[in-house]
Amino acid sequence: MIGGSTTSMSMSMAAYHPAVAMPLSSRSPWTRRCRTCCSANGAAYRAKIPMPPLNPNDPFLSKLASVAAASPQTILNPLPKDTPPYLDIFDPPNLMATPAQVERSVSYNEHRPRRPPPDLPSLLLHGRIVYIGMPLVPAVTELVVAELMYLQYMDPKEPIYIYINSTGTTRDDGETVGMETEGFAIYDAMMQLKNEIHTVAVGAAIGQACLLLSAGTPGRRFMMPHAKAMIQQPRIPSSGLMPASDVLIRAKEVIINRDILVKLLAKHTGNSEETVANVMKRPYYMDSTRAKEFGVIDKILWRGQEKVMADVAAPEDWDKGAGIKIVDGF
């Protein structure tokens, strides 16, 4: 009885739910269509993601919610493991300044010049100082002549100070590095200036550099106590690959430059051309005292020299203090 009741109940349920009791092949088209619609509604329901209450002032959540509402697949699609989530949705972030940069922007940059600082020759030029600290090669000649012309243009009445520490057109070992015309170019520029030119030798003034030292305004030529000056004959550049005729032409040109150098040194030192030519037969070195005696400079820049010389007593005072009596008959 119980078995019969169970069988009859199963048959009644199968009659009431035909889609459950019958196999899929024997189901009606209406049943299959209903099943498809239910699946589609379920997918649509699952696509609607419940969102918590949003803060309208949060730009991140607002952007994410708008993307989820417009295209849910952008949020649901799986991402690679090595890719941070949702970075393609937002704009790239703006990097913030570090605390050190903020500190400099407040304190340091306030007084920092807007342009990079000038180089050292430009700073010296601002004080009307031209420093020749290299052999007289074309690049040095170009810079020195340009600085002299600029200083005269800025003020034709203020003096110009030329500090010299150069071996001229040769190196310290005697090798030629420039033509004699390099020194003559600076010399001619000095002679064309309207300004007073104060020349100061620091270190060495050799060859053409010694000519520039002596070409300053008379009474304004100075030398440091331990500086050296030297005059010598011009040298022929290396001529190993030249034919004999070219070597002879070069030799004649060097002789002409030597004669010009002798005349200019004799003019500015007050010596005769014969005297200058004789001492130039071999390299003639001069310390500050000998350079002053030869007429290359006018004064040695001893620190406190003026005060020392002013404190020196006259010869009569020395004799009087020593008890020496001068007899009128002698």
Rank of each mutant, 00 (worst) to 15 (best):
S8M: 13
A15P: 02
H17D: 13
V20E: 13
V20L: 14
A21R: 07
L24F: 09
S26T: 13
T36H: 10
C37I: 15
S39P: 07
A43Y: 13
R46P: 00
P56R: 10
A69M: 09
T74M: 07
L87W: 09
P92F: 04
T98R: 07
E110N: 12
R112T: 15
P113R: 04
R114N: 14
P117E: 12
D119K: 08
L123D: 06
P138D: 09
P138M: 01
L143Y: 06
I162S: 04
I162R: 01
I164M: 04
N165A: 08
G174F: 00
G178A: 14
M179Y: 10
A185R: 14
K194G: 07
K194V: 03
A205Y: 05
M223A: 11
M224Q: 09
G240W: 12
G240D: 14
M242V: 00
L248C: 04
K252T: 09
I256D: 14
I260T: 12
L261G: 03
N271L: 04
A277I: 09
N278A: 10
M280S: 13
R282F: 05
D287F: 08
T289L: 14
E293D: 12
R303I: 01
A310C: 03
D311G: 11
V312L: 14
D319S: 12
I326N: 06
D328Y: 07
